[in-house]
C-alpha cells in the first residue's frame, strides 16, 4: 500500500487512542474505540491479512461498540453508596 496513506492512518490511530483515553464523556470514548478498531482493520488489510481485518471490522467496530454503549447506559459515573 502507499506509505503516505499508511502514515495518515497511523497518525489518526494514535489520535483516536489518546482521545479515547483522555476524554471525560464515556460515550465519546466508545465512539473513539470504534474509530480505533476501524482504522486498525484498515491497517490489517493493508498488511495483507484480509481475514483478520474483516474480523476486526465486524467485531471491533460493530458488536463491541453496541455492547459498550449498553454498559455505559447501565452504569453511572458516581457510586451510590
Amino acid at each position: 500500500m502507499i506509505w503516505e496513506v499508511e502514515l495518515i492512518i497511523l497518525v489518526f490511530l494514535a489520535l483516536s487512542a489518546i482521545v479515547a483515553l483522555e476524554v471525560k464523556d464515556m460515550l465519546v470514548a466508545v465512539v473513539m474505540m470504534t474509530i480505533f478498531s476501524f482504522l486498525m482493520a484498515l491497517l490489517f488489510i493493508a498488511m495483507g491479512a484480509i481475514d483478520v481485518g474483516f474480523t476486526e471490522a465486524v467485531i471491533g467496530a460493530g458488536v463491541t461498540g453496541i455492547l459498550f454503549v449498553v454498559v455505559v447506559f447501565q452504569t453511572s459515573r458516581k457510586s451510590n453508596d
Binding site: 484480509i50 481475514d51 474483516f54 474480523t55 465486524v58 467485531i59 460493530g62 458488536v63
Partner: peptide
Amino acid sequence: PGGGFQGGAL
C-alpha cells in the same frame, strides 16, 4: 475471506 464467525457476527 470470511466464514462462519464473521458472517454470524454480521
